[in-house]
Each structure stands twice: as C-alpha cells, then as structure tokens.
Amino acid sequence: MSILIESLSKHYGDQKAVDNISLDIAEKGVVGFLGPNGAGKSTTMKMLTCFIPPTSGTAVVCGYSILEDPIEVRKNVGYLPENNPLYKDMYVREYLNYIADIYKIGNKTKKVNDVIEMTGLAPEIRKLIGQLSKGYKQRVGLAQALLHDPEVLILDEPTSGLDPNQLSEIRQLIRDLGKEKTLILSSHIMQEVQAVCDRVIIINKGEIVADDPIESLNRNAGLVLRVRFKSLTDSTRLHAIPGVEKVESVGAHEFLIHSNSNDINEAIFQFAKKHDQTLLIMQDESKQLEEVFKQLTRN
C-alpha cells in the first residue's frame, strides 16, 4: 500500500478545493491526475506532501499518516511542485548537494552524479540555475525529487514548458520510474496522460469523477477513423459495414467513421477489397480520453 486517501477535504472559506475524496493507490505505476485548472489536483498533491494540512480527512503515504508523521512521509516522497520553484543563485550541483544534505544522504557525490545522469543534466552542470532554460530547470526540479530514491513520486505538471524532444525524454524517464515506484503526476495534456499513465483519475471541482485503468477509459469513448478512398463518393454504402455507427462525409472521397468495435479497421479493409475500392488512407482520429474528459468535466 503506497497511498491511501480517506475522505480528504480542503476548504478555503466557502470554496471546496478538494471535496471528500478517497483513493487507494496500492500498486506501482504511473497514475495521472487529470482535471481542468482549479479542479483540486495541486491542492491534493500539496496535502499528500504535507505542505498544507487538510480541512478534514486524512491520508496514509507509505504507511505513515500525513497528520501524525509528516516527517516520515516527506522522507518517502519526492515532490516536484507546480511552477518548479528553484534557488536561482545556486549552481546545479551545489543545489543538489544541498538537497542531499537535507535528506542526510550518505555517499552524496555518487547519488548526485546518478541523478544528474538520469535526468540528463550533465551538459548544463556548470551553470547557475537561474541561467538554465526552462527545460533544464524542469530537470533540476525532477532531480531534486529523485535524489533520495523515494518510494512515491508526486510530480505536479512535470512536463510544462518542454520542447518536443525534451518532452519525449522526460516521458520516457517517467515511464521508467513508474516501473519501480508509485508515481503520481498531474496534467491537463491528454496525449501525455495517454502516453505515460497506467491509471487515470479525473478530478473536477474537487471531486473524483472517474478512476479507471487507461485502457478502459479509452474503450468507453469509441473509435473514430478517417478513411479516404480513391473513388467512393456514396457514404451510405459505408453504413453497411458491420460495427459502423455513424459516417460523416468530410471531403470528396473522405469520411469519418465512428464505431465501438475494435475490429472496425479490418472490416473497412474487407469492405474495400470486396467492393473493389482503393483505400488510400485509414487513420485513427479518435480523441478518446479527450472526449471522456470533456464529458466528465463539462458545466
């Protein structure tokens, strides 16, 4: 059992930032907190890292209560806050040494070198943190969270401000870390959650509105395929394909096919073969998680 949240709430005056949520994250893997801005993702994370106390309810992290053993909780959690605050006037290695001192890590030099390598900080190691680009600052933030090899990692929007190359590197790192640790990350980027998470928790207005493994969330929303034939113009013929629910015509020979069947790709191909149609494009256009997200967090 890594994280157990029991009816946790945080109220600011009348506003319920987090409203009575309960969760059990027992397994290793990457858990995504997904929600619109102001849904309570960061507030929940701040309570789990003992930065702000809950109004009511409690949580147990790695067997320690956030109310009774905050110091033990913090020893077992690595945390990257939103906006990634850093000391701009420190050098990268100096900062990591400082964090290592706080955790009283033995064999400091080796540990610091390890995280520098893991997060790809080596090329910028001689710079002041304030001089680093946003992507490298983000890596420094990740490095300080990883330094004491925590069982649980809590990352609040870890990939904001990264360029596409950095994005895929950091995502790979997150996936790798998720194999050994319990990792919670928050995001409002759907593709990211789809790419790295094993389990998705959608939060809206302080409440959990969905909590599913990523596959089942994807399945719920159905598929959308973009197909283009060389000469087919009549969309009604496509309705005859088994599993097709809706066909939209989007170009002269181009259609969007909505379906709930996973075998739809093959059925379309068979249709093309049977009717002697040349199939030019068949492309997955489904924005499954995005659709689920919109449905659940609307209004």
Binding site: T49, R74, P85, L86, I99
Partner: peptide
Amino acid sequence: SSGTLEIIFTKPLN
C-alpha cells in the same frame, strides 16, 4: 516570493 518555501517545507525538516 519565489515559492522555494514549498521545496523546503516538503522536505523532512520541521
């Protein structure tokens, strides 16, 4: 003002 308080307050220090 820089937010680094959140860093040290989530470290094992009282």
